[in-house]
């Protein structure tokens, strides 16, 4: 029987196309247009060519923020991924305790970003905060509002507190999907705990861990609200990450042209990283399907 080809089915895609056009394509086009022009308000624009790109790429501001962003994301991944796996391995496998653990682990994920920032802002204060006061009483000099190192430690601790449970939940789901036959075979072979982890659990968690790394990297790479509420990007510019710098430029200084150029470069980097992660995930999926 000959298969009927009906091209009218393409019209079913039209609503999605319209939605994507208005939510991302048209704003993106506008940003591209702004990045080559200067504006003094009143919806008047003047062509400046590549000036904003030259200015940004040859100034330290963009590179400093980019360096801080990369360092922050690297530290976050280096802490949250192993810690999340460790937490998942320690969680009860079944019974009421497993349910309680799952609920507790999900709690930090439900707290809005600005509330997390506020919690840690109060928590770290030397006069009224539990952490700040305790450290002061122990004789440890700690002030996240004045010391760059303290600010970094607090921002990292806050992110670890907020997001490690996501990694733990993903890793836990990966662990639960391993058939018990693998563990029985390991027991028969008298495999050590490390060997079980290295040769059974870790390879089986590979897919979810890649997703966890992707999610955490992307989220930490565009982090804004939590450090903005906690430190406002300071002291100085020590915790001014890419998105904080971008908002300062676009809304604080109202430099639409440079901010548009900045956001396009930011977008290109994110696009590249997303493509690399996407390719890795697809390759892993295909490898697993073949195995």
């Amino acid at each position: 029987m000959e298969k009927t080809v009906n091209q009218r089915a393409w019209f079913l895609v039209l609503p999605v196309l319209v939605l994507v056009a208005f939510s991302s394509v048209i704003p993106m086009m506008t940003v591209v247009n702004y990045s080559f022009q200067d504006s003094f308000g009143g919806n008047e624009f003047f062509w400046v060519g590549l000036e904003w790109y030259q200015e940004l790429l040859r100034s330290g501001r963009l590179w400093d923020a980019f360096g801080r962003q990369l360092l922050f994301s690297s530290i976050i991944l280096a802490i949250e991924i192993p810690l999340g796996i460790l937490v998942a391995l320690s969680m009860p496998k079944k019974g009421w305790a497993a349910s309680v653990c799952l609920v507790l682990m999900a709690l930090p994920l439900l707290i809005p970003y600005n509330v997390v920032g506020t919690i840690w802002q109060v928590f770290g204060r030397a006069d009224i905060g539990l952490l700040g006061r305790t450290l002061s009483d122990l004789g440890i000099s700690y002030n996240y509002a004045q010391n760059a190192f303290d600010a970094w430690v607090t921002v990292i601790a806050m992110d670890v507190w907020h997001w490690t449970s996501l990694v733990a939940l993903l890793a836990y789901a990966g662990l639960r999907s391993i058939p018990s036959a693998y563990y029985q075979a390991a027991e028969i072979d008298q495999a050590s705990r490390w060997s079980v982890f290295r040769y059974i659990e870790l390879p089986k968690m590979r897919g979810v861990l890649i997703i966890a790394i992707l999610l955490r990297f992307m989220d930490s790479f565009m982090i804004y609200t939590e450090p903005f509420v906690l430190t406002g990007g300071g002291p100085g510019n020590s915790t001014t990450f890419l998105s904080i710098d971008l908002v300062k430029m676009a809304l604080g200084q109202f430099d639409l042209g440079p901010a548009a150029a900045f956001s396009l470069m930011y977008f290109l980097v994110i696009l590249l990283i997303s493509y690399v992660f996407y390719t890795v995930m697809i390759t892993i999926d295909k490898d697993e399907a073949k195995a």
């Binding site: 048209i26 086009m29 506008t30 591209v32 247009n33 702004y34 080559f36 022009q37 504006s39 919806n43 624009f45 062509w47």
Partner: peptide, 15 residues
């Protein structure tokens, strides 16, 4: 479409 600040070079780029 004034708010989109179109120019000929950017329009050609998207075309």
């Amino acid at each position: 479409m004034d708010w989109m600040a179109w120019t000929l070079p950017t329009a050609l780029f998207f075309i």
